[in-house]
Simulated assay, not measured.
Amino acid sequence: MQEKAIPIALKRRDIIGVAKSGTGKSCAFLIPILEDLIKEKNKNSVLRALILVPTRELAKQIVNAIDDYSKYLDIKRVAIFGGISSKEQEKKLANGVDIVVATTGRLLEHLKNNTINLSSVSSVVIDELDTMLDMGFLEEVEKILPHIGKNRQISMFSATINSTVKKLAKEFLTDPVVIEVTNQRDHVEKIEHQIILVDEDKKTELLSFLIGSKNISQALVFVNKKLEADSLVENLNLDGLKASCIHGDIRQSSRALALRKFKEKELRVLVCTDIAARGIDIENLPCVINFALPETINDFTHRVGRTARAGNDGTAITLLSVKDYKFMSEIEKELMLKIPREELKGFETKEKKPRAKQPKPKSLKDKKILSKKRQTEDKPKASKSTKKRKVTKRG
């Protein structure tokens, strides 16, 4: 992505970048922004770049990347997101900044309160656009972009291109260059996938056994419900596995603390929901576990993509109960995977398996019709010449 996107961005062309997480997108859009800032930099900082992201975790991750890349530059940046007081953000904005990294909701609050002016922005990046659309932020993005001056370059990065992405691009981008870097399927195939069959009521017990018996040093565990995350953490800690969770109902400070402890390996397990996990980047994460299957195939690729990043090895384990057999098959078909199923000793499944589809027995009437049809097909057919002779005779 960096090799393809940076030269185009430096030419000030609009970009639609299609790439999975972990492909170096942050560097691809930050390097051109910093290059432009160096050229235009005055003594006072003026807001030149806006980066829109779906989650506060991703906002903080990008701000950290800016700090790394601009270590020897006089660049001022601010992260704007909810869950914390906006006063400190207002103060930084008032003192002048070069780059704003923001979630859409809090940015709209600042626009409403006239604490930010986007008219001087010349570079706009919308990162993880597909996630933003999944979270229902399309309308907010459409409200923000008109506040930016016409002389701007816009780069949109998404894991997939759908009709909504195309609509947004058509509305706000000018003759964009489309850059596609590998299919998500390519990355998913490089991960070591495992499926462990288990009854639904044995999943919690199996999770602890699995992490302990396989000696998994770090595991990012995905669930679909907040209450399920809380319950799992309680059970894991009771089993002697240090765990915490992040989801929408947990305060930002607590989420940040849990993520920091997990990265520093003070926690062995981090349980999270899909939305809270977007933007999480953990170096050399060895294992992702799907405690429950996600709602969509795209979410599955986002989940397993947390491991095996930047060329490292990684394992994705799915705990599969009977109710999810069908959807798991759909995921495998779409991603062209064939993952072997296994059962662990002591956790053999007892749930009733779905019966293979049996052909519907034919009625007596159908059997008679079929028999007549076969008899007709078995009769010798007249040759073409015979048919012609008959016609001639009739004439």
Rank of each mutant, 00 (worst) to 15 (best):
I80G: 07
K338P: 06
S371K: 12
T174K: 12
I275E: 05
N113R: 09
E142A: 08
G240F: 14
V141R: 02
L238K: 15
N312L: 02
S70N: 10
S45N: 10
A382K: 15
S85M: 08
V63D: 15
G311I: 15
F222M: 02
T104H: 14
R48G: 14
V269P: 02
V181N: 11
K353H: 11
A308I: 04
D239W: 05
D127T: 02
K353T: 14
E332R: 04
I289Q: 05
I297E: 09
D67P: 01
K25W: 02
V177Q: 02
S385F: 14
V100M: 15
L344Q: 03
D175C: 08
N290T: 07
A229S: 12
S231L: 10
E264R: 05
F327A: 00
M132P: 01
V101L: 00
R374D: 08
V322G: 00
I33L: 07
D249S: 11
S163P: 05
R48A: 06
F291R: 05
A9E: 09
V46P: 05
I246Q: 05
F137R: 03
S119V: 08
V269K: 01
A5F: 06
Y69H: 13
T349K: 10
S385A: 11
R268M: 14
I211F: 13
T301Q: 00
K167A: 13
K91R: 08
Y69W: 09
K365L: 02
D324H: 03
I369N: 09
K388G: 15
S86W: 00
R374Y: 14
D366L: 01
K360F: 08
A316E: 09
L52R: 12
R394E: 13
R306L: 06
N298F: 12
K368F: 13
I282W: 13
K360R: 15
E57F: 01
E180Y: 01
M336A: 04
A79N: 03
S383G: 15
K350I: 04
K265Y: 08
D67C: 09
Q61L: 10
S85I: 09
I246M: 06
E57T: 08
H302E: 08
P146A: 07
T174Y: 11
Y69T: 07
V18H: 04
N183S: 15
A219S: 14
N312P: 01
I161S: 05
K261S: 12
S383K: 14
R306K: 06
T307D: 06
K225W: 10
A310W: 11
K333C: 14
A316N: 04
E377M: 13
G17P: 11
I51Y: 05
N117H: 13
K143R: 13
H193F: 02
R12T: 00
L108K: 15
A356P: 06
T318M: 12
V221L: 12
L257E: 10
L344A: 00
L259T: 15
P54K: 07
T131G: 06
G96M: 07
K92L: 15
I84F: 01
L118F: 04
V100I: 14
V121G: 00
D313H: 10
L241Q: 06
C245F: 03
H247A: 02
F29Q: 08
L270K: 04
G279I: 00
S163C: 08
Q61S: 01
L34M: 11
V101G: 11
N162P: 12
V198S: 13
D378H: 07
N117L: 09
V322M: 03
A102V: 03
P359H: 01
S213Q: 03
K190F: 05
N290G: 12
